[in-house]
Amino acid sequence: MTAICIANNKGGVGKTTTAVNLAAGLARLNYKVLVVDIDGQANATYALTGRVHPAPSIYDVLVGNRKLESILWQTNEENVWLAPGDGRLQNADVELAARPGREWRLARALSGLEYHYIIIDTPPSLGVLTQNALAAANKVVVPISLTEFSLIGIDKLDAIIEDLRDQLDLDDLEIAGVVATFYEDTTTARETWGILEKKYEERLLETRIPKNLDLEKAHREHESVLSFAPNSSSGLAYMELAREVKRRVPAHSRPYNRRSGQAY
């Protein structure tokens, strides 16, 4: 089992789109994938099932005492399961703030599950929920839209990963890849790409996800772009991203066991 956290404290960079389509891509490579939606907007839940803020959800696992297995759904994508999110997660940071071991609640809930990959979609913040996702993950994939704004505050995510790695003894937690999303061949995009290349070097993934209406249409049809328009530029790019992520972050078949300090 390998857990990948899709994180960026900036909103609108394609975290959910990447989580959904990366999961679908890995599933097409014959892996069994679980998507965990801990974003209070619950857009991954909508994109994979068409449901809007269902209950019970991962909120009841993180804040309540419900077993994770009792909320898992088969999604519209073959080999992709979902721990759905709902709007109550927007208050979860506050509700979890005073709980002991608050960063570990997701890791504990996932313990013992048997999937090849767990993809965790996070909210656009660096609060307790995102810390839970990072603590539960082995690796982080950071989607970045190639715009001027995307470079603001990107260092904060690096800093919090470093902090968590030290505080929680997560030796292997690191950014496995930075993926450029909403790519358009413009001067700004090329210049931003150049800056990211210097900053992240080999961690900048080769695959760039082009800006494409099919991504939006696929969300509307409650499926991945790999199902809706597999031969579109974004469909081909997400399939390529799945292959690249698989190479960088191989799947393991052992059950998830993060709390013990193991890598998987």
Binding site: G50, T75, N76, A218, R220, E221, H222, E223, S227, F228
Partner: peptide, 13 residues
Amino acid sequence: SLRLGSLRAILRE
């Protein structure tokens, strides 16, 4: 009331 994704999933499952 179901969209393409759900309909495809019904056929598959």
